[in-house]
């Protein structure tokens, strides 16, 4: 019994010690893995679509402004970090007047896919708002590795 009590205390201590770290990173992490596979678009496919004569989707960057300024997909618009209220509000404003069947592609690429704090909240926001033609660019590692280093089109600045 004593051992059990000690174990519980140790466990509680560990949880309390780790709480500050969790609050630094994210209040509530919504994993990108929650985005349905059918809603993902691969970098090669989006790159090909951008170079075709077909109508282009609206491409929205929902990550860091610094990374957007460093490199982004030509024609894409910076909205704001989907994991923060400022980004959520900006995304709501950006799509407010759009028809629900507008072709939209969201991307971030700040971190490895499973650890991205921005992409799933942004996807959920638009999905729940009723957008039906919504895709998310699948960047397994990050934008640098999975887009820039692959030679897909990039531009810099704001």
């Amino acid at each position: 019994m004593k051992l059990n009590r000690l174990s519980v205390l140790v466990l509680l201590g560990a949880i309390i010690a780790l709480l500050p770290l969790r609050s630094v990173a994210q209040q509530e992490h919504v994993p990108a893995s929650s985005i349905p596979q059918a809603s993902l678009i691969q970098p090669a496919d989006l790159s090909a679509a951008l170079q075709s004569s077909a109508p282009k989707p609206l491409i929205l960057h929902v990550g860091s402004v610094l990374m957007f300024a460093t490199a982004h997909i030509p024609g894409s618009e910076y909205v704001g970090p989907g994991g923060k209220q400022i980004g959520v509000d900006a995304l709501k404003r950006r799509v407010a007047s759009l028809p629900k069947d507008t072709a939209i592609v969201l991307y971030c690429g700040c971190c490895p896919w499973g650890r991205c704090p921005n992409i799933a909240p942004a996807y959920n926001l638009l999905h729940d708002a009723g957008f039906t033609n919504l895709k998310v660019l699948y960047l397994a590692d990050n934008f640098g590795t999975d887009w820039v280093d692959k030679g897909y089109p990039v531009t810099k600045g704001n």
Binding site: L21, Q26, H29, S64, P81, G83, K84, C111, N118
Partner: peptide, 8 residues
């Protein structure tokens, strides 16, 4: 960055 889980 503070928003980067692996960094933290």
């Amino acid at each position: 960055a503070t928003w980067c889980g692996p960094c933290i």
